[in-house]
Design a protein around this nucleic acid. Structure first.
Length: 489
RNA sequence: GUCCCCAUCGUCUAGAGGCCUAGGACACCACCCUUUCAAGGUGGAGACACGGGUUCGAACCCCGUUGGGGACGCCA
């Protein structure tokens, strides 16, 4: 795609001798005012994928320009969320607040060059202008430029001025967005916005432009709620004499109500999904498919995503979050996960529970029975719950339905008789146990279910479990007979 | 209100003028398998927001309408 200055950086200028292929630099720039939610996570993912695809770098910048709203907890949550998602950034994270002096310096320089000016308006004046704009047609141009060409000598006493950038008064600006295409906006809908607050600190608009430039960002991939800002930033880049990075404004993720996802709209931090037992790989795959596609492909492991990811296949319409689909993907990746690893993880979590010990026999049972459990689980948490049956040594907790089944004297009698049969045999495989149970049921004139369900209740303490002969095989002869005995009495 | 963006099954999407009586995935329904629950298999229901153009031909191009979203801070 031909662009004016594709991957240009004006500072430092690349030398002709060391002229490596212009490298892609992306950045994820969250403001640490809350947790990392699903929308931010996807923005980070897209930036990460794009950088990895082009063998460029993915940088992280914490936009803590704001005063009191930024918190250490939020910063920690962002780092944790990214790390959980496996989105590693290159180099050290940049804290925007550290660059405040540089930001102010650039603003001063712009004043010297006549591209920016001090504005001494009071908050009251601004409010008035806002009302004026609304009453006279509702224009988005609020500030009327009253200090734009006014002699600074007329500055009133006792008013700390802000610095505003001079925006073009007429004409129009076109942004060639990598996702949205060409977007044009009339310049007279943009006013001279503030770049330096009256306390001398930079505003977001100034800080982003300077930091993006200083960090050598070639592609700014962010939510399309920033599309309007791009026009302002474009002119700031121009005023500074810097190349404008490529913009890619990706659609937002909406909540169930169709509105922008935010803390108020039921958005949850990624750590919530971690706690739910979602796998990072599944989350990446899910987030990727929200707004991006590669034909009909659905299961796209991260390596494949890196190979395929391009900005031109990002859609332009907003998407909604669908937990069912995430869960489905998670179930898929759960089955793909190395069983040994999974078993170790579950044992570690179980052993972590106060007052719980996991016997070597229990570990062995889990390893043997995990496959049957995994097939039935959508999350790691479900898997942990269902693992109880193998991890606990008798006696087990019994749920209500199982208790009801075992409450029937006839069922207990059946179990007693079956236990007797089982006590006689020495070999203990799933197929043989199956056959024995069938023969037993037939000899008693019972349906297999009339034998299997009480057996399940006795052996698992539940009315739901993997195939009961599989369970018996995994449990082994002794444990099976022990559990049966407990249930019968 | 003004500016900007968007518009295919309930949801995520394929589709870049004829390959579309619109494909896939999740969810849903039915059946098969079956000792429960899943998994798996088979089948089903389900969408081009509306109206005008352009064209031999439009889900795809243009205009308008409607609907949705975003932005209009000394927040980011």
């Amino acid at each position: 795609m031909p662009r004016a200055r594709p991957y240009g950086r004006s500072n430092p200028p690349p030398t002709a001798a060391s002229n490596p292929p212009m490298s892609v630099v992306t950045r994820f720039a969250p403001s640490p005012t809350g947790f990392l939610h699903i929308g931010g996570a996807r923005t980070a993912l897209f930036n990460w994928l794009f950088a990895r695809h082009h063998e460029g770098s993915f940088t992280l910048r914490i936009e803590d320009t704001d005063r009191k709203r930024s918190t250490d907890e939020a910063i920690a949550a962002i780092f944790h969320g990214l790390s959980w998602l496996g989105l590693d950034h290159d180099g050290n994270a940049v804290f925007q607040s550290n660059n405040a002096a540089r930001h102010a310096e650039v603003a001063e320089q712009l004043i010297v060059e006549g591209k920016a000016y001090r504005c001494y308006c009071t908050p009251e004046e601004l409010t008035e202008m806002r009302e004026n704009a609304r009453n006279s047609g509702g224009s988005t141009r609020i500030y009327d430029g009253r200090w734009r060409d006014r002699d600074p000598a007329e500055a009133p006493d006792g008013i700390a001025p802000v610095v505003r950038i001079k925006m073009p008064l007429d004409g129009e600006t076109t942004i060639s967005d990598l996702v949205q295409g060409d977007v044009t906006r009339a310049n007279d809908t943009l006013d001279d916005f503030i770049i330096l607050r009256s306390d001398g600190t930079p505003t977001y608009m100034l800080a982003v432009v300077i930091d993006d430039h200083d960090m050598g960002v070639t592609h700014a991939i962010r939510g399309d709620d920033h599309l309007n800002n791009a026009f302002r930033q474009y002119h700031l880049f121009e005023a500074c004499g810097w190349d404008v990075p490529h913009f890619a404004h990706i659609p937002l993720i909406h909540g169930a109500d169709g509105a922008k996802l935010s803390k108020r709209h039921g958005a949850l931090g990624v750590e919530h999904y971690e706690e739910l037992g979602i796998l990072p790989e599944a989350m990446r795959n899910y987030l990727l498919r929200l707004g991006w596609s590669h034909g009909d492909d659905e299961i796209i492991p991260t390596e494949q995503a890196i190979a395929w990811f391009e900005l031109d296949s990002v859609g332009r319409s907003p998407a909604r979050f669908d937990m069912d689909k995430l869960l489905n993907l998670n179930a898929h990746y759960l089955k793909e996960t190395d069983p040994e690893e999974l078993a170790a993880q579950i044992v570690a979590i179980a052993a972590d529970t106060p007052g719980t010990t996991v016997s070597p026999a229990a570990k062995a049972r889990l390893s043997a029975g995990l496959g049957g459990l995994t097939k039935r689980a959508k999350t790691i948490n479900e898997l942990i719950d269902s693992s109880e049956l193998y991890l606990r040594d008798a006696p087990l907790a019994v749920n209500d339905k199982a208790a009801a089944i075992l409450g029937d004297p006839e069922a207990r009698q059946t179990l007693g008789a079956l236990a007797e049969e089982l006590g006689k045999i020495t070999s203990w495989t799933e197929a043989e146990l199956d056959q024995i149970a069938r023969n037993f049921a037939e000899s008693k004139g019972l349906k297999l279910g009339q034998v299997a369900q009480p057996l399940r209740a006795a052996l698992t303490g539940s009315n739901v479990s993997p195939g009961i002969f599989e369970v018996m095989a995994v449990l082994g002869r002794d444990e099976t007979l022990t559990r049966l005995e407990i249930a019968v009495n």
